[in-house]
Design a binder for these strands. Structure first.
Lengths: 148, 148
DNA sequence: GTGTCAAATTATAATGATTTTAATTTATTT
DNA sequence: AAATAAATTAAAATCATTATAATTTGACAC
């Protein structure tokens, strides 16, 4: 964990940003909830537990900054809220999501499923792909078995 | 065009909704701007030109209804606004988008690029796919050539 | 160490998209 | 035509997010 904080610190420094206590607290919350797809409000409340003086606006600004630096991915599942996911180490791309329409659970897929599709897009539409976002909506394993 | 309105009318009736004048006006705007990825506000302004008495809330309600009936797809490119695209006739799936990070243009891809990927997801993660959304972010043909 | 400057943060207010409410209108059924 | 339900309007409310102004922090010069 300290290791990853160090890396993020370096990423910030490389663009002449600082890892302030508030930013560090925010990053720590993200690291501790890597699977959780937290909203800005969620992050705010969790950070507040350890650092009660932090403001919501600061959390928003920090998440925005981390998003620009590609430390986190800002995602949107269609409810009105943005969610923030830590990008996995070494991942060049956004990871994919399986959203269950029954129970609302969200599962992540790390594998890059789109290498081939991306090549098609690049050649067929002459579009230079930088990133992609892919979400499947459907019924998760759990909810399938409940229908028996 | 009248043809497609008729179809949508039937879809509404099949769920015991009516195609009111306001709803029809809204659908017509969507048909006339099929490539445009209009926001609710955009639709509202366009509908207002022909039917000045319509309210914004009605447009929202209509778009929400059409979205539930899968007549339109509600999409979200990460700016704070929802956009509404008519689903192509016979399309079972959401279509894909190429969003240019330089000029903001959005191009649609009708082809189903994900048949194979979907099968992988279904078998490997035991997730029953109902729909998907795929967006590529990158640089469009136009913006590429401007960089010469 | 003290003063100065820029960056960051706080608390609050403002914004903008969307939703809700209550009152009114329209369409449908009896 | 009266009664009922569905849809619409206009206005207010809500919620996420962003901007503002004042304050604090930290780095560097003296």
């Amino acid at each position: 964990m300290e290791n990853r904080i160090e890396k993020i610190k370096k990423q910030l420094h490389s663009q002449s940003y600082k890892l302030t206590p508030q930013r560090e607290a925010t990053v720590r919350v993200l690291l501790e909830h890597e699977e959780d797809h937290l909203s800005a409000e969620d992050v705010y409340l969790l950070v507040k537990e350890k650092s009660p003086e932090i403001g919501l606006a600061t959390v928003y600004r920090t998440l925005e900054l981390l998003s620009e630096l590609k430390v986190v991915d800002k995602i949107n599942f269609g409810d009105g809220v943005s969610r923030y996911d830590l990008r996995k180490e070494g991942a060049e791309h956004f990871h994919h999501h399986l959203v269950c329409v029954e129970c609302g659970s969200v599962k992540e897929i790390e594998e890059d499923l789109l290498g081939h599709v991306e090549k098609t897009v690049e050649s067929q539409w002459e579009f230079q792909v930088k990133d992609h976002r892919l979400t499947f909506h459907g019924i998760c394993k759990n909810c399938q078995s409940e229908h028996d």
